[in-house]
Write a protein that binds this DNA or RNA. Structure first.
Lengths: 193, 193
DNA sequence: TAATGTTTTTGTCCTAAATCAAAAAAATCA
DNA sequence: TGATTTTTTTGATTTAGGACAAAAACATTA
C-alpha cells in the first residue's frame, strides 16, 4: 500500500529551512519509502531498533516517554516535520522515546544510518540538519522557560497561541501531559470562559 | 590584558566532539581573542549585540533569563564549553538570555558572524556544530523530563549526581532557579540528611 | 443503534512547595 | 579586622494543582 508521493510538498518544507541544491536534495529523495499509519499505530515503539526517520506528509504524531507507567508527551509533529528517535540517531541505542500516530498518517521513511551518512558528508544537508536542530532546540528551550515561569493556565494559553492547530487536533489528555498538568486540571482550565 | 593561550586544551575538547582536521581547526583558532572576566562580570548582557561567542578555558559562567525581575538560570558552563547567545547566533536579534561569570573566567572570544560563516562552509566544523547541539539538546530534553516527573528533592539529587562539580561550585540561589524551585525550598532539601 | 470502551468533566479533599519574614552565616571590602 | 552586603537558613502560613472517584459525553465497532 503506497501513498501517492507528493515530493514537491516535502521539498518546499525542507528548503524553507535551508536552500538545499537539487543535487543534495536528490540524495535524500532517492532513499524515501512511503508509509501509511493508522490512528494509534506506532511509528517508533518500545524496543524498536529498525532505525527509521519519518517525514510526515499528512496527519499528526506525538512523541512520548513512559515514566512509571505514565505517558508524557514531549512533542507533536505535523505536516512537513521530520520525526526520529534521538537515541537511535545520536547514540545508536534503542529509543526511550516512542512515537505514535494521533491521526491517520502518511509519511516517508528513510533509514537513520543512511540519513546520518548523508548529513555528515553533504554540506547542504549538514546545514539543513543544523537548522532543524536549532528550531527544535528553541521550541524546547521556550517551553522550558514557560514551565518555570507560568502557572498552568497561562502555559495552556501560550500553547494554544503558539500551536493553535495542534491544540485543536490533539486530545486533552496528551496536551495535559505535554504541559505537565493533569487532565482534570486542564479540563477545568478550559471550562473557565 | 591577555591570558596565556593554552590552545591544546581547547583543541582536545573540540576534537572530543568531532574529529576536526588540523586545517579546519586552524580556521577557528586564528580568529580567537583572549579575555578575562571577573566574578559577576557579564559576558553577554542586556542589549549587548557585539555578537561574540566564548570558549571557556577556566572558571564557570551561568546563562539566565530575567522574567518579571526574576533571574532564571538556564545553564552553567565550565571549562571547555562554548557559550553564545542563541538569539544572536540564529536569529540575529539582541539576546534575551544573558551570561555572567560565576567565578573568574578566562575565555577566548570569536565573532558570531565569523563563526557562523565557518560553520556553514566547512564540513568538519558543521559536523562539530551539530554535535554540540545534539548534546545541548539532550541536556535540556532530559532536564525537561525531570521537571515533569520528579519532585523537587529528586530533581536536586539528579542534578547533584549529573553535575557534581557544578553543584559544588554554584550558588544555592542559582541552582534553585535552574531547578525551578525557591532558594528556601532548596535549602530545606539540602538540610535533610 | 445498541453496546462497549475511551475521554472529558466535575466534585471533594489533600499535599508539596510557594510566600512572606526575619535571623544567622558567609563573603566582600575599606 | 571590623563593617557592610549578600547569601543561606529557619519558621509560620497559604495556595495551586494533585489524587482519587464517579458521572457525563463522546467514539468505535458489531
Amino acid at each position: 500500500m503506497t501513498a501517492p508521493i507528493q515530493i514537491p510538498n516535502l521539498i518546499a518544507v525542507m528548503r524553507k529551512a535551508w536552500p538545499i541544491s537539487d543535487r543534495s536534495l536528490a540524495k535524500i529523495i532517492d532513499l524515501l519509502t512511503p508509509h501509511d499509519f493508522a490512528k494509534r499505530q506506532a511509528l517508533v515503539s518500545e524496543g524498536s531498533t529498525d532505525g527509521q526517520a519519518y517525514f510526515i506528509e499528512t496527519g499528526m504524531t506525538r512523541s512520548y516517554w513512559v515514566v512509571y507507567g505514565e505517558e508524557i508527551t514531549t512533542s507533536f509533529s505535523t505536516e512537513g516535520t521530520l520525526v526520529f528517535s534521538m537515541d537511535e540517531m545520536y547514540y545508536g541505542t534503542p529509543s526511550e522515546e516512542y512515537v505514535e500516530a494521533v491521526e491517520p498518517v502518511k509519511a516517508w521513511s528513510i533509514s537513520i544510518d543512511e540519513l546520518r551518512q548523508l548529513i555528515t558528508s553533504d554540506m547542504d544537508l549538514c546545514n539543513w540538519w543544523c537548522i532543524i536542530h536549532q528550531n527544535e532546540y528553541r521550541r524546547i528551550h521556550r517551553s522550558h522557560k514557560e514551565r518555570l515561569t507560568l502557572p498552568a493556565q497561562e502555559r495552556y494559553r501560550e500553547f494554544a497561541r503558539q500551536f493553535p492547530d495542534v491544540c485543536r487536533r490533539a486530545r486533552l489528555t496528551d496536551i495535559a501531559s505535554y504541559l505537565g498538568i493533569t487532565p482534570a486540571t486542564l479540563s477545568r482550565i478550559r471550562s473557565i470562559k
